[in-house]
């Protein structure tokens, strides 16, 4: 029953026109930016404009698509009564959530596989375009975390339209608003306070968390500046790696737990 649910969810996900369009759009934008940047600029190790573009395309597009599609998927189930129907089958809530989670993750893995494939193939033809391993890893983490968050949003929203708007709000909050708020606060508070606030935000904002992970795992934490020497030094240590892994797991587990709780609450009502 459980594997049937995953297959069914995956099938629905892949059949969705929205998903197919997103796949095309992501592949097109991702490939164009990466290929143009890498062809136009000299090949240099380290954090450069081209690696920044790579990272930003990933952080801009992927969370947006995952949050909207993932949240609407679960909200749609609730809205259409599909979730109520599923409950009549011998299947637990956890199985439903994990099924949904796995199906969404697999669907997005297929999309990025196409995009990476196109980048690699074009890179092979044109030369000078590479796909660093760290970006592949970061993409997988991004899918894992944001799918989990998408399900939580869907569980809160209950209607597809509300899920869409909530996803957009949360996406802009993580991508832009939180950073702008911090920058604005920085104009009125002392540097050391801003530094501490930034470290907190780094942990509570998954976009910043992934970006921070990129700098840590590529050993380019110096990009973040001397103000963050202690925190980067910690995360660059073996213990830091473990803590990074734990926090990342929490970013996946907590929204899923929250989703289960929300659905249970909904059932009771």
């Amino acid at each position: 029953m459980y594997s049937m649910l995953i297959k069914l969810e995956l099938k629905q996900m892949l059949r969705s026109r929205w998903m197919q369009l997103v796949g095309l759009l992501f592949t097109f934008v991702f490939t164009s930016i990466i290929v143009i940047q890498q062809m136009a600029l000299p090949d240099v190790e380290g954090f450069t404009r081209q690696t920044a573009s790579f990272l930003n395309v990933l952080l801009f597009l992927l969370p947006l698509f995952i949050l909207t599609i993932g949240s609407m998927s679960i909200a749609g189930d609730i809205e259409t009564g599909w979730f109520s129907l599923l409950k009549t089958y011998p299947m637990t809530r956890k199985q439903y959530i994990f099924g949904k989670y796995l199906a969404t993750v697999i669907a997005f893995l297929l999309i990025v596989m196409v995009a990476f494939g196109v980048v690699l193939a074009l890179g092979g033809l044109l030369g000078g375009v590479r796909l660093p391993f760290i970006f592949i890893s970061l993409t997988l983490l991004c899918i894992a975390i944001f799918t989990s968050l998408a399900l939580a949003i869907g569980a809160v929203a209950k209607t597809r339209l509300f899920a869409l708007s909530l996803s957009l709000v949360l996406w802009s909050f993580f991508l832009l608003l939180l950073s702008y708020a911090l920058m604005a606060i920085g104009t009125v508070v002392a540097g050391h306070i801003l530094q501490k606030l930034t470290i907190i935000v780094m942990h509570i904002n998954p976009v910043e968390w992934l970006r921070f992970g990129y700098f840590i795992f590529t050993k380019q934490a110096s990009v973040l500046g001397p103000s963050f020497y202690n925190v980067t030094a910690f995360y660059a240590s073996p213990l830091g790696y473990v803590v990074y892994g734990l926090v990342t797991c929490l970013w996946v587990a907590l929204p899923l737990a929250f989703t289960a709780r929300r659905l249970k609450k909904g059932e009771k009502r």
């Binding site: 954090f47 920044a52 991508l175 832009l176 920058m183 540097g191 001397p226 103000s227 963050f228």
Partner: peptide, 22 residues
């Protein structure tokens, strides 16, 4: 952003982040 970074080095954290690019 560049000017802020000169005044307050902590801002360097945001260098080339999505928000700063925009």
């Amino acid at each position: 952003f560049g000017q802020w970074m000169v005044q307050q080095p902590v801002y360097q954290y945001f260098v080339a982040s999505p928000s700063v690019v925009l």
